[in-house]
């Protein structure tokens, strides 16, 4: 099977200049990253601000070009300029600020923006817009102004705008960073539904730990490198290591870890309240 996203020794460097425009230094934002994401996967990339996780997202969408190494999206080389629009159509991208990615003043017209750019015939655009809005649960808002929506709703409209381009993969660059807890839940739930029902590959970039629990795989980045990788349970069982990368763990995971340190016989990588209660029963 063709891989959805595949990279080897991916590097991105940029030159920093001082006020006079002289070269100040070279920053390696992404430093030798090897990725292997299969179609239908739900992968989360964790890392603190400046860890290079957003740069990777922009490379996948061919907004930034790799300095070294290679990156293929569904078999297409992102450095190949002839494939640029194919790559962008295959891997749609959702950004952090919901306001700054909605182009039209009516929800349905915004969702239509992508298909319009692709030259999709009018009748098909209507079908796609309706499907996409239904998939994110925003169909009843199709004639509303985006300005009147909540942050979570705006972000779902942005996701619908990508879905209407029929991508195989969605890359989301901290889509919940500016949302309140309810908005965050809405967006994450929508992503899991799209992943399950429409079989879209999801690459979720975030720094919120509770959002990655449902992912198939978690990748932790620090200083441009992949430093941890595995199922959420595998990653969250290493509380100390996560903390050294300036990341959190869910409260219940931390509690279990603290209790284990204090001598209680608890298993590693507890992720939910239910698991914790169950494990504690075994202790008694």
């Amino acid at each position: 099977m063709k891989k959805m996203i595949e990279s080897k020794n991916l590097v991105f460097e940029y030159i920093r200049r001082d006020e006079e425009g002289n070269v100040d230094g070279i920053i390696r934002a992404v430093d030798g990253v090897t990725l292997d994401i299969q179609p239908g996967d739900f992968v989360a990339i964790l890392g603190h601000n400046g860890s290079g996780k957003s740069t990777i997202a922009k490379q996948i969408n061919a907004i930034l070009e790799p300095t070294e190494g290679y990156l293929y999206v569904d078999g297409k080389d992102v450095s190949d300029h002839d494939k640029l629009w194919e790559v962008r159509q295959t891997a749609g991208m959702v950004f952090q600020n919901p306001d700054n990615q909605i182009i039209a003043s009516v929800v349905e017209e915004d969702v239509a923006f992508g298909p319009e750019n692709l030259g999709v015939p009018t009748e098909d655009i209507w079908v796609r817009v309706e499907e996409a809005l239904r998939a994110v649960g925003m169909l009843e808002y199709r004639t509303h102004s985006p300005n009147k929506l909540s942050g979570g709703q705006k972000q779902r409209v942005a996701i619908a705008g990508i879905m209407a381009m029929k991508p195989k993969c969605i890359v989301l660059d901290e889509p919940t960073a500016m949302l309140d807890p309810n908005g965050r839940k809405e967006v994450i739930k929508t992503l899991h539904e799209l992943n399950a029902k429409e079989n879209v590959t999801v690459l979720l970039i975030t720094h919120y730990m509770d959002e990655v629990i449902g992912a198939d795989r978690v990748i932790v980045m620090d200083e441009g490198k992949i430093v941890m990788q595995g199922t959420p349970r595998e990653v969250f069982s290493q509380v100390e290591k996560l903390k050294s990368y300036r990341l959190d763990v869910p409260q219940v995971t931390e509690l279990a870890w603290e209790l284990k340190k204090a001598g209680m016989p608890l298993p590693n990588g507890i992720l939910t309240v239910e698991e914790f209660t169950e494990a504690l029963k075994q202790c008694q």
Binding site: M93, A112, P115, N117, G119
Partner: peptide
């Protein structure tokens, strides 16, 4: 300026490349 920058990136990510070859939802 930040917004303009973000928006330009978001438009490109949604395959916007000028009026050429565009279709319309509501012609």
């Amino acid at each position: 300026f930040h917004r303009a920058n973000d928006l330009a990136m978001a438009m490109e990510a949604r395959c916007y490349r000028g009026g050429e070859g565009r279709t319309r939802m509501k012609p």
